[in-house]
Amino acid sequence: MDDPIITPLGDRALRVNFGSVISEHIHKNVRSLCVLLEKYPRWGVIEWIPSYTSVTIMYDPLELPFEHGYRYVEELMQLALSEPLPPARTVEIPVVYGGTYGPDLDNVAAHNQISAEDVIHKHSTPTYMIYMLGFAPGFPYLGGLPEELATPRLAEPRTVVPAGAVGIAGPQTGIYPLESPGGWQIIGQTPLTLYRPDAEPPVLLQAGDRLQFSAVSEDEFVEISESVRAETYEPVIRWECEADD
């Protein structure tokens, strides 16, 4: 693990910062620390929040003095040197593209001067990195959208975007976990539920996972929707060890 900078973030949090740019290498440190925080819990630690370049650890200063929290993180860093990182998950996200499910597919195609089929192909080919969750319950901040799909947001945001909508906003792609207003270019919809309060954990995707979109037909969408509702759907997940770097 790279040497981080550990600083207070207010009087109840400790921020462990690994760098200042979005990179898979920096994020590997973030994931590694989160894995160790889970594996070696410490009294007084309430929770932690991973982001692109840092992990913020919330603690109760009356249970765990700052200096002890600092030393705990240093100990975890030492452990990181000897403990292999568990395999990362790649979760497959079925998407029905275009039509009423993806009303802005043609916008994205036109903006980038490619065909709608090309948009679907280019969007469902890469493996995307989930750097962090935020903005809404279970919303993944993804890295890896091909540059030739980047499209500005809608000039006029929609008042209602359905849960599961898959969209593009500038250089970013994402999935709406909840029905909400929004200005992203909607190119498709997934039948999977990203936020599921009765499950453990309550979200489908986690920081450090990867995901891949796979194009499905409307019939398949309906079929998967039904098995998601019946709670019989098993997401397709691949496990991959990350190469040492």
């Binding site: 989160c34 309430i46 929770e47 932690w48 929040i49 991973p50 919330m58 969750l133 935020g134 903005f135 809404a136 319950p137 279970g138 919303f139 976990p177 936020y195 954990p201 309550p202 979200v203 986690q206 920081a207």
Partner: peptide, 10 residues
């Protein structure tokens, strides 16, 4: 409901 901020849950 602390404990779920890593999942984007307020």
């Amino acid at each position: 409901r602390p404990g779920f901020q890593q999942y984007g849950i307020t």
